[in-house]
Design a protein around this nucleic acid. Sequence first.
RNA 1: CGGGGUGUAGCGCAGUUGGUAGCGCACCGCGUUUGGGACGCGGGGGUCCGCGGUUCGAGUCCGCGCACCCCGACCA
Length: 480
Amino acid sequence: MSKKKLPSRTEDYNDWYNTVVMRADLADYGPARGTMIVKPYGWTLWENMQQALDRRFKDTGHVNAGFPMFIPKSFIDREASHVEGFSPELAVVTIGGGKQLEEPLVVRPTSETIIGHTYSKWIKSYRDLPVLINLWNSVVRWELRTKLFLRTLEFWWQEGHTAHATYEEAQEETLQMLEVYIDFARNEAAIAPFYGRKSNSEKFPGADVTYSIEAMMGDKKALQAGTSHNLGQNFAKAFDIQYLDNNNEMQYCWTTSWGLSTRFIGAMIMTHGDDQGIIMPPRLAPHQVVLIPIHKDDGQKSIVMETVDRISTELLDHDIRVHIDDREGFTPGHKFNYWELRGVPLRMEIGPKDVANQSVTLARRDIVGKEGKNIVSQENITSKVSDLLIVIQDSLLERAIKFRDGNTCEPRDYDHFKEIVADGFALAWWCGEDTCEIAIKSDTKATSRCIPDIDLPVKGGACIYCGKMSKDKAYFAKSY
RNA sequence: CGGGGUGUAGCGCAGUUGGUAGCGCACCGCGUUUGGGACGCGGGGGUCCGCGGUUCGAGUCCGCGCACCCCGACCA
């Protein structure tokens, strides 16, 4: 391992991010431009995220299925705004088995179209509804500028696709899944995103309404970290998803889709990371505790390892994810830095002094240096560790909220607005017009992130840009 | 596609008037070490982005490609 320090986040945030992703062994570049290799450490994190999400999907009545990666090109063309949105970034297969294909196949950029085609065959009666399916897969979008986890040609995600009998049910589903993402973000990833409705220009191509969760990164830029769409009857009409209602009348279905991707890993890195590296929220961390044995000679080693084995077994028995770093030839100091870079939330050092005193040394990743270090007795070590993991989880969330709110302001006027979005989020009255959003973007590089559904103390206000009376406020920020 | 930059060991770089390639980290071996990034000795690893040209001789000079990165237009 390099002994070089990381680039500091304040000096070059971008450099810090790229370096930390590589050095922490989360991911690497693939051989084709813009592709990503997720390394085992990064994939384990993804698996933990998958489990936390999948549990929530199952709890809300969804089931998983697998759908084809190849989609007939003509499917994409069926829904007008969907084509418009996705055609610039499609990967298209024209040759198969050495022969030119009759019809080109699109590598799925998302599955709404093939789902539409399939649901129209499956759904005949109101008794078939709702259909609540989720897919775990990867999708391909031919991006021009890429960045590990945040935007690559291929990325891994889940996409939920549901069909309902009524608008109300579809809208309820859309909002329910938004809630699932908010809950996942807060309680698993210790991220407190803003959330709300997307503006017309920011919504998903083919959706009536898009909702998103928007998290503030360490450089105060916004990252869209999950989306939930009410697709109305757009895809139902394009793919003829109809059912007979209980009056024997044909009706179009109302569909939704919602997704969260490996991009969220980027959100975790950029929410919690510091100049020592990344910080994993305990609930998702591949290793929750790293145990570092310290010893000089073989005699000390066998004594120390006895305690290490006993304590690690006890922790493992209580489902705490422990990793013992017993590699030879690395000093403890080296290992401290190594695991701090990788973000393990809690480090336990056990050396001869600890064995003699029936103690262990615990070091919190979220509190750098001596202040985060404590020597505690081995008594009830399991409950001490699991309590501390909860404390760390909570403090990460609290810190993230404080940072978010400390960098979000309501502007007095447009000059003030420009000042705010240069280095933070603005919550401002906004008319919602495309022209206003475009003007603001060319002026400030900031775009509307979402329009929160919040109780406003006054009924309306003047749009921050054009001054027109507006009933909503929107968050504005520069974004990834 | 516009504007800027870089291609030399896995990574980061040096390479003088053109003379046959080196440094740091990483890697392998042996020994001493180990409570905040250990040290010594030994070792392996190179179509110098590609093609063409000038020359007795090109990493170096000239021409043409290609790739990648950064900044803009598009994006979970």
